[in-house]
Design a protein around this nucleic acid. Structure first.
Lengths: 345, 345
DNA sequence: TTGAAAGCGTTACCAA
DNA sequence: TTGGTAACGCTTTCAA
């Protein structure tokens, strides 16, 4: 062989020429068709190996109409919840020949639209989407429908959309967390909530439900809201907690929309000289890694993010294989309360 | 318009037909060629909008030979260091029309090879790579060279490879961290190191250098090594620390390969009833978020991960645009010591 | 068992 | 300013 210093994109044509067979034959060998004689097959395979042949997937995609790419759109890759999902999704997809194209919406609905349009232009076979769209009317859903690109919603459901969804029961999460605080003798419980997406709203509903059940009051001012974006909640949680602590009757427990928010809340509480959980019990959602190594280990609700990624990927594959002939499926995964010191008073 | 319920993949052909122009004209309008009359241009653009036309990027890729995709291969997406890089890379790439395909090697060299081959088959225009290959002889590098696919190494450099690299000076990190411990009156300093990649090795060299400079001994047994993989180091750090603590003369300071390892080490120290930093000072690398909210806030060296992603993405773009006619560049970003309670004795 | 021809949606080249 | 023609590398179909 010549010194392999020059660019050499090997094509089927080259292998066919070298071996005196047709391109079709090479193509068939590549894809394991059985109407090829073992002798030819072996020669072709050997030559492929010699030349280190790699099929051009763009060309294949053009003729088959399938790209073997799946898009994943999340609000923030840095959030461990979504990173874990991304990891699990590739883990399921890769052995099946698919690859993952990631896009980040940065919690911005318009950006999400353009990211999805870009994915569609790339002919992705399916999209897995933690959407920040406000409603089912958003043009993204029409786009995907128009191209018949199947999609799976994760984490945040969009009411009124006939699409598959994988996530958790957020109302249940809110209920569970709040009941937990009540059972630990909190009587004046505040909530630091997230932006207006289904998850935050569900958790708030669960919060109210638990309190109502126990006939506990929720002063209006005890529900603070954090606009996401800023440092994924930590700063927001800090400020919200400051507000809560400045009230004349202070809460003795706080249920935070997520762990980042809770960590911010903890920081505010420490700075104010409070003991956690003696003066203030805190619980979050997400069960972040290292939650148990914090100054006061943080109680949390585990959202089962690995399983969300796993299931979403599998459903995406089903939708691709089925060519759309499959009914939307809604999967609610179980959650688990992880009690740690921040609420064990 | 008919109800848009049926699949409708709009092609240039359709627009051309509707308007009585040629496909070429449509193509030129799409790409902003200026040899088209404004009148035609407007008609085409309007029709594109009406039909919600999206160019088929696979087809374009086939003829131009460029996919506008960049591959990113990391050992573990879940590690915040790599997640941050991934986020930054998309952030640079997206506005320029590129998308990011992610692949995870799981710290497995063979898996890394196959992931890279898959990316090459997809015609990615460049690859950004935190490689786990042991040497420059690995076939992956030949592969990428053969296809003239430019690549940028990040985080871990491969000695003897003529490739662009973006990372930090790991020997300096090790030196800085160790000097810091020495300055804080540690006299018996241990190291918990990582797997044999350039980063871990550099940090170890820096460790030895700082100790030698101060004429401090390093008993062989004071250098523990963690095989990555297990929970990104936390468990390994824990076990390594247990070993160190079981010695007849215990270290009074430990420099850990990364923050995860350090957190494991902290856990072991706490369980042994030690006070940090009074009995044992600890410093890590990575400056993980929430490092300052740990039970004992962890001192660390910040690796500037955002900037690594930024620079790697820009270099990748340059390499793509230059068509290989650019000399490899090695960028060493500055690091910063973040002192916290774990080493402020 | 093999292969010739057609075509996938786009862009490049050059002529009109 | 416009467009015809020929690619790009592959798969599909169908005939040999």
């Amino acid at each position: 062989m010549a010194k392999s210093s020059k660019k050499s994109v090997v094509r089927m044509k080259d292998i066919a020429r070298d071996l005196g067979v047709s391109v079709v034959t090479v193509s068939k060998v590549l894809r394991g068709h059985d109407d090829i004689s073992p002798a030819t097959r072996d020669r072709v395979l050997e030559r492929m190996r010699e030349l280190n042949y790699k099929p051009n997937l763009a060309a294949r995609s053009l003729v088959t109409g399938r790209s073997y790419m799946v898009g994943l759109v999340v609000p923030d890759l840095l959030h461990p919840f979504f990173a874990e999902i991304a990891k699990m999704v590739t883990h399921i997809l890769r052995p099946r020949g698919y690859c993952l194209v990631i896009a980040s919406s940065e919690e911005n609905p318009e950006l999400e639209v353009s990211e999805i349009e870009a994915l569609l232009a790339r002919q992705v076979d399916a999209i897995i989407l933690a959407s920040v769209q406000a409603s089912a009317q958003s043009p993204v859903f029409k786009c995907m429908d128009q191209l018949e690109t199947p999609y799976v919603l994760i984490d945040r459901n969009i009411p009124g959309l006939k699409a598959s969804f994988v996530g958790v029961d957020d109302e249940h999460i809110g209920y569970l967390a709040t009941r937990h605080l009540i059972e630990h003798r909190c009587r004046s419980i505040a909530h630091i909530g997230g932006p207006s997406v289904s998850t935050a709203e569900g958790r708030l509903r669960g919060f109210r439900k638990a309190l109502a059940e126990s006939k506990l009051e929720v002063p209006m001012q005890f529900v603070e809201r954090v606009d996401s974006g800023d440092d994924r909640g930590e700063e927001g949680g800090y400020k919200a907690m400051l507000t809560l602590l400045s009230m004349k009757t202070r809460p003795d427990g706080v249920f935070c929309y997520n762990d980042e928010t809770a960590i911010g809340a903890l920081r505010a509480a420490f700075e104010a000289g409070l003991e956690v959980p003696a003066d203030l019990a805190v619980i979050g959602v997400g069960n972040m890694r290292f939650s148990d190594l914090l100054r006061v280990p943080l109680s949390s609700i585990d959202q089962n993010s690995q399983l969300i990624g796993d299931r979403a990927a599998r459903i995406a594959l089903q939708l691709i294989e089925a060519g759309g002939a499959i009914a939307p499926e809604s999967v609610l995964l179980p959650v688990k309360l992880i009690q740690r010191e921040s609420s064990s008073g």
